[in-house]
């Protein structure tokens, strides 16, 4: 009996899953018709967390760029949304898209600056950039200075309509970020990124332009962070510099990604959902809640560095067929 090998992206599971996802999406679209407003708000929060985790994972898990300064783009996204919709008078949903684009425009020149640092110093470098942007924003009177600015664009809209509209925006945003992440990972860029992550030097020698690929990811995820920032501004109806540029966002994103599983698409989603329920349960404990998160993070990194998703799936299956895998099959069965 001869043994041959088959290279494929998914397992049999991945043939059924698209239908399940489509059904799930339809259900989510219809949700505001059946669900009370407080629950819709909770969904928006969860969506934002998933976007943040997915973007941070794309940056660190696939791009190899560990940043603790992505709150810079959350902040830029939030302030851009308020500025474009309130001060320029553009429809807030169009403004949301523009805010994301604006973040990409900011990210490109900034990448030339922070890419001069590597490893841990890159991490702090991005953080300094976020601090600098905050210090500048605080100086700008039109943006409310240190006390922040309220979003007035929804003032004519009823609460129910507003929340549902924000819910759908968040749904579109999460759909787009997840879809583009999956498509990205199936593209040539995704392949290049995986190669860089596995062995930067080898990838470089084989002709992968490490710097340019990383820059593309940096700009892309910054747009995702901008989208999340805009959504945060929409759901809070207010932006304050110390909150929106807080390094706590980085702490939360890292926690979600690490606990779920770095370098997989499913892991961060999983991690975000776990985090959402943890914070819901533990937030009454105040500071102890963050201490527990910290200890949990250390335990996961030390004991199960592949994260909970990695631990569950053991690399046997994936929900989004992005990885190539080799399977053995005998000639008789394969033919």
């Amino acid at each position: 009996m001869e043994i041959s090998y088959v290279v494929s992206r998914g397992t049999r599971l991945n043939k059924v899953l698209p239908f399940i996802f489509a059904a799930l999406l339809l259900a989510l679209v219809a949700l505001p018709k059946v669900l009370a407003i407080p629950y819709q708000v909770k969904f928006v929060q969860a969506f934002i967390l998933i976007i943040l985790a997915t973007m941070w994972n794309l940056l660190a898990g696939f791009g190899g760029l560990v940043s603790i300064g992505q709150q810079a783009f959350i902040g830029i996204g939030a302030y851009s949304l308020v500025y474009i919709s309130d001060i320029q008078g553009i429809n807030p949903f169009v403004a949301l898209a523009l805010a994301a684009v604006l973040c990409g425009v900011f990210a490109l020149p900034l990448s030339f600056l922070v890419f001069r640092l590597s490893g841990g110093y890159f991490a702090i470098g991005t953080w300094v950039i976020a601090e600098i942007i905050k210090l500048f924003v605080v100086q700008v009177k039109t943006l409310g200075g240190g006390s922040g600015i309220s979003l007035g664009a929804f003032s004519g809209m009823g609460r129910e309509t507003r929340i549902a509209a924000i819910y759908w925006s968040a749904l579109v945003a999460i759909f787009l970020t997840l879809l583009s992440t999956i498509l990205l990972m199936r593209s040539k860029l995704g392949l290049a990124l995986t190669a860089i992550r596995d062995d930067e030097t080898a990838a470089g020698v084989l002709g992968v332009n490490v710097l340019r690929n990383r820059r593309s990811v940096f700009v892309m995820v910054s747009m995702g962070f901008g989208l999340a920032g805009g959504l945060i501004a929409m759901s809070n109806l207010r932006v304050q510099p110390d909150d929106i540029f807080s390094v706590n966002y980085s702490a939360i994103m890292i926690f979600m990604v690490v606990i779920g599983g770095l370098g997989t698409i499913e892991g961060p989603i999983f991690g975000a959902i776990i985090y959402y329920f943890l914070q819901d349960r533990l937030k009454d404990y105040g500071t102890w809640y963050l201490i527990i998160l910290g200890l949990l993070g250390i335990a996961i990194v030390s004991l199960a560095p592949e994260g909970l998703w990695g631990w569950i799936s053991r690399n046997r299956f994936s929900l989004f067929a992005t990885k190539y895998r080799i399977s053995q099959m005998s000639k008789e069965r394969g033919a």
């Binding site: 841990g120 500071t287 963050l290 993070g297 030390s302």
Partner: peptide, 24 residues
Amino acid sequence: SKGALAPLLITFAFSIIIQNLLLQ
């Protein structure tokens, strides 16, 4: 031995733990 990311994450966790213990 677990790559460049692990020590970064752990020291970041130290940071959060120390800050919140002091706050407490």
